[in-house]
Design a protein around this nucleic acid. Structure first.
Lengths: 355, 355
DNA sequence: CTGAAAGCGCTAACAA
DNA sequence: TTGTTAGCGCTTTCAG
């Protein structure tokens, strides 16, 4: 077992002082060429690597980013993390992940655990519970402590900080417009409870599109679905609920689900009822997850570009961090990522529409 | 903006020495009750949190775990991370993630980036490329530097360390046995190239089961699939390949896919060919991913228990870490996680079999 | 050209 | 009961 090399050991081994060694390793011209070479060779041979903890302490920055997300077993969030990782890695940053499981308390605990100097900044998507409570003290305090926060996807207006979002309302509107363009008139919306802004905004988009096309809005055709667990039971409940809507309104000819699960479930229910998709019924989902690709027929979706959002979030945070190093404070930005419709087989025609 | 509190500031603010403050915060009886209370109140008020970097430097341990995985946008790995997170969090450890994208070089870079004192130990699932090259120098060196490594899922015999695996061979055998028990005789195996031990072992299990039931082995019925990208094209190629096997062998009555994608793809191909699943054909997949649940019919699978494997990996690593703290070195263990068959609708009967 | 010293924030042994 | 000191590993200023 090789013991860990340190400047001190190299110094004593070579009969030099620590500072000489430190400089030699940096190839500082102050040091004689001879000594530089000797030290560098020695260091290389023993595989010396400066201790990052010591560096962090000295530099008062850790070069690590804390990422707080509601869920990790979730295609979208996994994609986002991927994007963050990629950018972070390329800039020599590490990424620490904290998972909140949609819980307000876990969000706080996770953040507090990292706010002790472990990280330089946060990238966060707020938990559902936090959004419900509308309690953002912990975020505000973090920012007050001079730790920058970048919000993505689930961002809130109340907090001034960098944000990476998509235009959910517009995305919803365009999805519905697509259905209308296909001739659909009785469109079922499967959405979340309203405290989730993404659900609320996509619902707004739904209304917008109907209004723009003079199609009356029916409260009956909007199903607001609550927490959906992993259980078979929750799943079956959802199916039944959709089934009931179909019984009341057998002439539904379009479905928009604000996430993949809703859309795929509806797709399956419809087909079990003997409906031909996309002949009698078109279905559009949200998210670029894997379910859509493997569903039969393949599901047309509004893509979310999770990977790109992750990249942007990381770039934005690191940009701010590096500016702060030079005592500059860039203004906060809100970046809206374009969504687009990925046309697959659950809708009729074949063009990809830029939203 | 509140400036960060430190012992030093508290000390000078309160006219005490740093060490007095430090002890007072620990409620050390050495310090007068009066001062203890004063200090604690002050610290609480200013939300003092000891700087973790300084602590890490002092204690020569970071209480963070490095997790190196091939992919994060992958249900199984996401589950594993979840499990790791859960255990790590409960023991006050942080988790740093490094993604290799199945690349040998990225694996090395990722590990080197963390081996500089950033983490206390690794949990790793080797990249495909590493497995192909059979080059484990970096792992060996890590262990030699006294940084413990726990391998999961993709472990190799060549390296002595803690391992969390499943008995892939047995799992494969039992899946096939299930098909045979249903009366299936002509069973298609969709597996990976042999350098991936999981594919190879599951293939062995396939052969085992055939042999045990005196069913002749046909090389034709074993399809070894190479790298499968995210692209539509790769996907279509796979479909075509499966289709071709069906053309040669229209009487296939069972399919076992060593992962979810293979199985779901085969299921879809079979149904498009007009085969009734599970009447004419049974399909079993591997993995407890989300595709299986939403496939129609719902796919029977061998569950992998990713979450539990993550928990075990984290527990095992932390256990060793804490022992090492007391200068003890526990023997290496290999823990085999039981798999079980989750019977859904792509096979005939209805019992859950313990493997 | 080289090295001593201070300091990043904290703990702990020891002195007062 | 409190404070001084040394040290974790490193960088950097400044004196030699």
């Amino acid at each position: 077992m090789k013991p860990k090399m340190t400047l001190k050991k190299i110094a004593s081994e070579l009969g030099l002082s620590i500072s000489t060694v430190s400089k030699a390793l940096k190839n500082n011209k102050d040091i004689s060429k001879e000594n530089r070479e000797k030290v560098q060779a020695f260091a290389k041979y023993y595989n010396y690597r400066p201790n990052s903890v010591a560096l962090s302490l000295k530099n008062r920055k850790t070069k690590t980013i804390g990422v707080i997300i509601p869920e990790i077993v979730h295609h979208y969030f996994a994609k986002v993390i991927s994007g963050i990782e990629e950018v972070a890695n390329s800039k020599e940053y590490n990424v620490i992940i904290g998972v909140t499981n949609e819980s307000f308390n876990k969000e706080i605990i996770n953040m507090e655990m990292l706010i002790d100097g472990s990280i330089d900044g946060f990238i966060i998507s707020l938990s559902k519970e936090t959004l419900q409570k509308k309690d953002y003290k912990h975020i505000r305090e973090t920012i007050n402590q001079n730790i920058p926060v970048v919000m993505f996807d689930r961002a809130v207006d109340e907090i001034p900080c960098d944000k990476i979002i998509i235009d959910d309302r517009k995305a919803g509107r365009m999805a519905i417009q697509k259905l209308i363009d296909e001739g659909r008139r009785k469109i079922l919306l499967l959405t979340t409870k309203d405290y989730l802004s993404i659900g609320r905004l996509r619902t707004e988009g739904y209304k917008d599109a109907l209004a723009a096309n003079n199609i009356p809005y029916h409260e009956d055709l909007v199903v607001r679905i609550g927490e959906l667990g992993d259980s078979e039971e929750d799943q079956r409940n959802l199916e039944q609920r959709i089934n009931r809507v179909f019984e009341m309104h057998p002439d539904i000819d379009g479905i928009f689900g604000v996430n993949e699960i809703y859309a795929v479930t509806a797709l399956n229910v419809a087909r079990l009822r003997g409906l031909d998709v996309p002949e009698q019924l078109s279905v559009i989902g949200f998210s670029d997850g894997i379910l859509s690709k493997y569903a039969r027929p393949h599901l047309t979706t509004v893509s979310q570009h999770g990977f790109h959002m992750g990249e942007l979030a990381a770039e934005t945070l690191i940009y701010r961090l590096e500016k702060m190093d030079k005592d500059q404070i860039p203004p906060y930005t809100t970046q809206v990522v374009k969504t687009n419709l990925i046309i697959r087989d659950s809708t009729r025609n074949n063009t990809s529409i830029e939203l």
